[in-house]
Design a protein around this nucleic acid. Sequence first.
DNA 1: CTAATTCTGGAACGTTCGCTCCAAAATATG
DNA 2: CATATTTTGGAGCGAACGTTCCAGAATTAG
Lengths: 193, 193
Amino acid sequence: MARQKAFDEAALLERAMELFWEQGYEATSVRDLNERLHLSSSSLYNTFGGKHDLYLAALASYRRVEYAQVQAQLAEAPAAKDAVARLFNDLAASLLADESRRGSFTLNAAVELGNRDETVAYLLQQHFADVTELLAAFLTEAQARGELGSAHAPRDLASFLLHNLYSLAALVKVNASRAEMERIIHVTLSVLS
Amino acid sequence: MARQKAFDEAALLERAMELFWEQGYEATSVRDLNERLHLSSSSLYNTFGGKHDLYLAALASYRRVEYAQVQAQLAEAPAAKDAVARLFNDLAASLLADESRRGSFTLNAAVELGNRDETVAYLLQQHFADVTELLAAFLTEAQARGELGSAHAPRDLASFLLHNLYSLAALVKVNASRAEMERIIHVTLSVLS
DNA sequence: CTAATTCTGGAACGTTCGCTCCAAAATATG
DNA sequence: CATATTTTGGAGCGAACGTTCCAGAATTAG
């Protein structure tokens, strides 16, 4: 047998994700990654295959985290409307707390590469569909319990809410104003009558 | 005196804008621009100063067009709600009609560079503020005429509507489904009671 | 036509890109 | 300890990057 790798692959992926998240795909060089991960080119290519593969892996990892977060936040809330409100407020808080205003990695990836990289587009399509489904199921139950009006179909509401969540992530890239976010959130939540 | 330039600067700027819009800033090389504009490096640098300057000029140009478009569409509509609805439907139609799914140049710029390029961030802040103001003024008048409920302040509604417009531009990058867009638009417009 | 000036294409600059390669270091086995 | 196998850092690959430079073409004024 032989030597073992001197690093934790999952931890490295996490650090790579942070960097891609901050700078985007094109603006991040392999040398940037070498420095940030404390990993030389050879090890990086041995482990992850290349820049593009590493990006895809980072994106897939982020996607799982984002999905789990929504899932967790919906699960622990008492009332349906409060749960959705918390989803928005927590996202706004975490977006504003981030000094480098990275927004959402999945949204960034969609905008930067969605129309040029089929693999990225497909992965994100899956992701958005999955989260929408999660939200729709939650809203369906809430409607059944009478916690939610039936002015809109749960599926429609879910799409609407998800895209307004991502809107906040886009907004923070340019205008990191809490007041502006709160205005938008307030109007958005008003559709949950 | 001496020779005159053999090209129309405004037309070149338009072509540059198209390319940056398609590919983003980082992924567009000066050689790409040489080819697309049929203009050599020397002329490009003489005329526009450099890649970054050209990008800023293209962005400023796009911003004026986008603003004028919203202005025109709001002006020509009969009733306020119809005007807003048309804003959404026309945007959706033009987004879907674009084979290369470029989305909105301003949103693309915000997501790619908003957190890394101060000049871009400032320019876009101005732009979004201007368009919001335009919308808010329109909604204020509509409210005064009684065409719109007063459940929300015009300023809040304007921010909300604008960000939902940009949401469509982000959505098209990954999922160019007319049905999905219509669902979102339907819920969005329902706040205009 | 001559002279002065400006624009033009394209070669070439130094740097950085993604990626490969290899000798040296490291460590699980017999 | 010796051997086999794998990982490691870093030099270096060809290509592409943004930008500069310059010789020559082009055009206006005198």
